[in-house]
């Protein structure tokens, strides 16, 4: 059956997204009534958030995912096989008999809800139905302007997010993911752990933005490090300046993902890529330090 969104005109979709924005704005300014002292999360909320954070490494799943960036939409058939450390995607709108794209997923220990509560305010919202499944809406509101906010409708059974709306700290909607159809697989007994890539320590950071820590690094395709606050993730790539350019900067955006480049004449090109506001990208570029060559 054709999804409802496919039948909507551009104008109606804009209205729908606008309504979504209003909802987000309300969620972002209304303080959570569920939060308590200590960790800051009520037990029920903490349980749900932890379930959300760990769900993708606990269950296999498959389904059809709607991906929406403004007026650009795409349906993607996904199949996650975490037990085998891989997943696959088929982009249904690209071409007839679109090829299967297989990817490897490296499992990591999930972040705890309490760890994130310093930088995000969580609250439970209304019950939802997504892809025919009961879901609970969790709003994740950044406590500063260095992170994005999210509305997630999580599957009541597994905790997997069935619908995710990302927005700037100011509430501007950036992208939406939603399962049009979803099948929950079996719980995973054993997760395949892949060897993590390592490489020479080409650069370091002076001061990372609050809450961000280095979680990985590599040398392919160029030297890079990965930092995260437990929810938002950013990769920082560094390479020789490709052209004889004066100092400058540029940004490309797609949905919630940003690529920010900054060039240092006769030196390096820094690329910061991740799901963060440009403020955070600039702070990360500021923090890059390259050891002096003797």
């Amino acid at each position: 059956m054709m999804p409802i969104t496919a039948l909507l005109s551009k104008a109606i979709r804009a209205r729908v997204m606008q309504a979504c924005f209003v909802l987000l704005s309300c969620v972002f300014v209304v303080p959570s009534h569920s939060q308590e002292a200590g960790c800051g999360l009520a037990p029920e909320l903490e349980r749900d958030v932890n379930k959300l954070l760990g769900a993708s490494s606990v269950y296999d799943y498959s389904g059809t995912l709607l991906v929406e960036y403004g007026n650009d939409r795409e349906f993607i058939a996904v199949n996650s096989r975490q037990g085998q450390g891989e997943g696959s995607l088929t982009r249904l709108n690209r071409q007839a008999d679109a090829p299967l794209e297989t990817v490897a997923v490296q499992p990591l220990g999930p972040t705890s809800a309490c760890g994130l509560a310093r930088f995000y305010a969580f609250s439970i919202e209304s019950e939802q139905v997504v892809a025919g499944r009961a879901a609970r809406r969790i709003s994740i509101r950044p406590r500063d302007t260095l992170r994005l906010g999210y509305l997630m409708d999580i599957d009541a059974e597994s905790g997997l997010p069935l619908r995710v709306v990302s927005a700037t700290p100011e509430g501007q909607v950036l992208e939406r993911f939603e399962f049009a159809q979803f099948q929950l697989g079996q719980a995973i007994e054993h997760v395949a752990v892949l060897a993590s890539e390592s490489g020479p320590d080409v650069f370091q950071f002076a001061n990372l933005p609050p809450g961000f820590i280095v979680i990985g690094q590599g040398a392919s395709p160029v030297a890079h490090k990965v930092v995260s606050d437990g929810l938002a993730s950013v990769s920082i790539f560094i390479e020789p300046q490709p052209r004889a350019l004066a100092a400058g900067e540029g940004v490309a955006l797609r949905g919630s993902t940003l690529a920010y480049t900054r060039g240092i004449p006769n030196n390096f090109l820094i690329t910061v890529m991740g799901e963060v506001p440009i403020t955070t990208a600039r702070l990360l570029a500021d923090a890059v330090r390259v050891p002096q060559v003797p």
Binding site: L53, S57, Q82, V164, S228, S235
Partner: peptide, 10 residues
């Protein structure tokens, strides 16, 4: 590099 940190790794 970052998929495993996301609630939906795909």
């Amino acid at each position: 590099q970052t998929a495993a940190l996301q609630p939906n790794s795909l």
